[in-house]
C-alpha cells in the first residue's frame, strides 16, 4: 500500500480536501477525521467531487467524529468506509507513509 492521507478540515473552510484529492496517487487512501468528516456527507456541494474520487481512491471516515457532530451514518456517501479508532491505527500501520494534511 502507498500513502494514507488524513484530512481534518471542513471542505467549506479551506481547499485542503480538493488539494489532497488532486495530489493523491492512485493506490493511496484518504481518511477523514475531525471537521474533515463533513467532506463525505451526501447532498453537499462537495459530494460529487467525493463520489468521483471514490473511483480512484479508498476513503474512510472516523465514526466518533461523525457522531459528535450529529452527522447521521446513513448520510455518509456510499463507498466511504466508516471506521473506529482501532481501524485508524491499522490504517496507519498498513500504509507505507502517512500524510496529515493541516
Amino acid at each position: 500500500m502507498n500513502m494514507l492521507h488524513t484530512i481534518n478540515k471542513s471542505p467549506f473552510e479551506n481547499s485542503t480536501m480538493s488539494s489532497c484529492i488532486a495530489m493523491c496517487s492512485q493506490d493511496s487512501s484518504i481518511l477523514f477525521i475531525e471537521d474533515g468528516v463533513i467532506s463525505v456527507m451526501k447532498s453537499t456541494k462537495f459530494s460529487e467531487l467525493i463520489e468521483n474520487a471514490l473511483k480512484e481512491f479508498k476513503m474512510y471516515v472516523l465514526k466518533p467524529d461523525l457522531e459528535a457532530r450529529g452527522l447521521s451514518l446513513n448520510n455518509v456517501i456510499e463507498g466511504v468506509e466508516i471506521v473506529g479508532y482501532d481501524e485508524f491505527v491499522d490504517l496507519t500501520t498498513e500504509h507505507k507513509t502517512v500524510q496529515s494534511w493541516l
Binding site: 471542513s10 467549506f12 473552510e13 471537521d35 463533513i38 465514526k63 466518533p64 467524529d65 457522531e67 459528535a68 457532530r69 450529529g70 452527522l71 447521521s72
Partner: peptide, 23 residues
Amino acid sequence: TDDGVYQLMKGQQTEGIGMKNFS
C-alpha cells in the same frame, strides 16, 4: 452561517471523542 450551522445539529454524541457535549 457557513459551518456554524453544524453547531445546532440534533443528536450530537461526544462520548467517542472524549469532549464535553455543549449542544
